[in-house]
């Protein structure tokens, strides 16, 4: 039959094109479809994520020849022994966990009211403005923000200017200064998941709770908190893990203090001890693994 202009609808005789045949094959083979869909990301994950982590794990058991500086493959626990026995490593590990914990707690406490206001009180227009305001700092470079805080924290900075009249002083370049800066840097990552989980809590649940006699705090504790716990956990994972891995902020605003990341950096660079660096780098990985396992046990991730 003749086709005058393009395909005739309902003519019953469609000449299959090559693309059409492929579509037909794909349609009838869901498993093949799934493999094609996931081939690229799974390969990438396998190579880049898993392989790199495995390499890190294996390297941590290597040693370095102290004369030649060459890597000596093998299975030695030396690095881990010094990680646990060396007082510097121990002190830095606990300091890093302490800062990460403090930053996480402060960020969650700051994020909760902000996220609540955004999700439940602000008008849709204001909500849009707030979401953009929270995302905007993420456009700026991390370094720029850290240096901005260097100036805020300095002896002649905004903090000093604001606090000296009150008889206080700027925390300066110290652990506290680094904590404040890190808290600022990760705050958007904590607000956003909490905001999105709060947004999913229907308003009428809050009304129902109040209707049944619960005061504001009771509603927050018994209804809101359990429902947004996955969001809080997600946010805390960001703040905690990003702080655990940081080594730049502490250099810029932390004075002479070191965190785990600095130890990794110096071991890779100055000390030329790659295996030790790998062993230290595993510390945050293990801590995060422990944290996630603990969180999972509470059931907070069941409703993700």
């Amino acid at each position: 039959m003749k086709l005058n202009s393009g395909a005739k609808v309902g003519s019953g005789e469609i000449q299959p094109t090559f693309a059409h045949r492929i579509s037909t094959v794909l349609y009838s083979k869901p498993k093949l479809r799934l493999r094609l869909l996931l081939a690229a990301p799974v390969t990438w994950l396998g190579l880049v994520y898993i392989a790199a982590l495995l390499a890190l794990l294996i390297t941590a058991f290597y040693t370095v020849d102290s004369f030649t500086g060459d890597l000596k493959p093998g299975f030695a626990l030396d690095n881990f022994i010094s990680l646990f026995t060396d007082s510097l490593y121990r002190a830095v590990t606990f300091r890093t966990i302490g800062i990460a914990f403090g930053v996480t707690v402060v960020d969650v406490l700051l994020a909760l009211p902000i996220a609540f206001f955004m999700a439940k009180i602000a008008s849709p227009k204001l909500r849009g403005v707030l979401v953009i305001s929270i995302l905007m700092p993420l456009w700026a470079s991390y370094l720029v923000k850290a240096y901005a805080w260097r100036s805020v924290l300095s002896n002649v900075g905004v903090f000093a200017w604001l606090l000296r009249p009150l008889g206080l002083d700027t925390p300066g370049y110290s652990l506290l200064g680094a904590g404040i800066t890190l808290g600022y840097l990760w705050l958007p990552y904590v607000i956003l998941p909490i905001y999105s989980s709060l947004e999913k809590v229907p308003n009428n649940l809050l009304e129902a709770s109040s209707d049944l006699g619960a005061k504001t705090w009771g509603t927050i504790r018994r209804i809101v908190f359990p429902l947004i716990l996955p969001g809080i956990v997600a946010g805390s994972i960001f703040a905690f893990s990003l702080t655990l891995g940081d080594y730049i902020t502490i250099n810029i605003v932390g004075g002479a203090n070191q965190m785990l990341g600095n130890l990794v950096y110096t071991n890779v660079g100055v000390a030329n001890n790659l295996p030790m660096a790998a062993a230290i780098a595993l510390v945050p990985v293990v801590i995060m693994f422990g944290y996630l396992t603990a969180v999972r046990k509470t059931g907070a991730l069941d409703n993700l």
Binding site: P202, N204, E207, A208, D211, L227, N303
Partner: peptide, 13 residues
């Protein structure tokens, strides 16, 4: 007074 909501507003957790 107590309310029975249109979509029930039960606490899912």
């Amino acid at each position: 007074v107590n309310t029975v909501f249109q979509d029930y507003a039960l606490f899912g957790h």
